[in-house]
Amino acid sequence: MRTALRIAALVAILAALIVAPQYLRNYGIYLLSLWSLFAIAAMGLNLTLGYAGQMSLAQAAFLGIGAYAVALLVKAGVPFWVGVPLATLVAFAVGLLLGFPALRVQHHYLAFATLGFNVLVYLAIRNEDWLTGGSMGIGQVMGFAGMPRPSIFGYSLRRGIDFYYLCLAMLCLSTLLVWLLLRSPWGRAFAALRDNPVRAESLAIDIRAYTLLAFAIGAGLAGFAGAFYAPLVQLFDPSPFGLLESLSLLLMVVVGGSGRFWGPHIGAALVLLLPHWLQALLPAWLGPPDQWYLFVFGIAVLVLLTWCPGGLLAIPDRLRARAQ
C-alpha cells in the first residue's frame, strides 16, 4: 500500500515536471533544467557523504571538470555524445585520485583537503586561459556563441524546452542508476563504511576500495551533470565551480536529508527554485530575493540543523519520535 502510494506520487511529480514547461516562460524552463542537473550532482555528493560517510567539499569542482572537459572535447571535434561519457570518466578518475587522501584522514581533515582541491581546480581553470579562456570564459576559446547545444537522432535540442527534456531524462536515468547502485551489495557496503569502518573491515569489507569508489562515483555523477551544464548555459567562466557552489551543493544534500534518497532532489529545488518563487509571492519592497536569499537560507539551514540535523526528510521521523 505504501509502495503503491509512493509510486503514484512519483508518477504525479514526473507528470508535473513534463507538463510544467507549457506554463513557464524561458527563464522558468532554464531554472528547471538547472535544477535537474544540480540534483544529479547533489545525488553524487549524497552518495559520497550521505551513504558512504566521506566528507567532500569539492563537488562543484567536478561539475566544472565535466563542463570544461566536454566543451574542450567538442572544440577538438569530438561528438557531444562521445564527449559526455569521456567527461564523466575524467571526473570519475580525478575523484578516484581525490579519494586517496580520504584513506589517510577523516571528517574535518577530509573536508578541508577536498575544499583545498576545489580551490586548486578553480585556480587552474582561471589561470590557464590558453586552455579554458580563464576568467573571460569559455567563449574566449570556443567563439562567442560558446558551447553548442547537441542534437539527438538528428533532432536539434537547441530550443530551451527540448534541452530541458534532455536534462530531465538524464535526471531520471541518474536517479534510477543510483537507486540500483544503492540496492546492490555495494550500497550496503557503503553504508557499512559510513556507520563503522573498523567493524566493516573485520567482515571482509574492503574499506579502501569502497572509499575510493564512493568518491569516484560521486565525482562521476557531478562530471556527468557538468557535461550537460556546459550546453545548457553555453557561455560559462570558472565562477560557478568555486567554493560557494560546493558549499551550496553540500547544503542541498544536508537540507534535503543526508543519506535520504530524495534529499538531493528536494535540496536542489529549495536552493535553486525557491528564491524565484518567493520573488513572485513576496511584496516588492523586500527587494529581489537573489540579494538576500542566501543569507536567509544560511540562517534557515542553521536553525533546521540545530533542530533536526537529519534534514527536511527526517522531520516526519522526528515528529513521530516526539509523539511517542
Partner: peptide, 9 residues
C-alpha cells in the same frame, strides 16, 4: 568489546 553494528542499516 564494545558494540559494533551498522546502526543505519
Amino acid at each position: 568489546q564494545s558494540l559494533q553494528v551498522f546502526g543505519g542499516l
